[in-house]
Design a protein around this nucleic acid. Structure first.
Lengths: 78, 78
DNA sequence: TTGTAGACTTTAGTCGACA
DNA sequence: GTGTCGACTAAAGTCTACA
């Protein structure tokens, strides 16, 4: 599984834990809702600045965001 | 301090631990050397795909990359 | 060995609309 | 509430070159 998908799944799981809609998250992170949708579906290569915005909106630090089994192995080839 | 600078410092510290030059890292991560330079100096908003490439080239997982005091607090406002 | 600059191509990210 | 599409603007990332 590639990083874009991992990030998307992580965002979605944190968002649902907070009972937020994509619209809520988009507003709170100051990003476009349709963009959040495509990121969650692993279609977009999100930048670090926006990952931080989303993390903040979800109430976690970057460290916490990445402190998850999904990120225990990189998908990049050797 | 903003995320772009934190990422840059983190990359540089890991790179120096491995005794790699920017050129080595660029080659290994399949990115441009001048680009690595500007990322290390906090001038670029690197994307997640490239963060993973760099992490892999540096021999750490994404989890390890972000498992660092610098990422304990987000710089994004409230 | 690293920083930066300029010109370039590709993609991130916005916005409105509709299923 | 979410996915996607099309058209748009801003910015990522490449490449060559020189201090």
């Amino acid at each position: 599984m590639d990083v874009k998908s991992k990030i998307g799944i992580r965002i979605k799981e944190l968002r649902e834990q907070k009972n937020m809609s994509q619209k809520d998250l988009a507003y709170s992170a100051d990003l476009d809702r349709s963009y959040i949708a495509s990121v969650e579906n692993g279609q977009r290569n999100i930048s670090i600045v926006n990952i931080e915005k989303v993390s903040t909106a979800l109430g976690v630090t970057l460290k916490e965001f990445f402190n998850n089994g999904k990120f225990d192995n990189n998908s990049t080839g050797s």
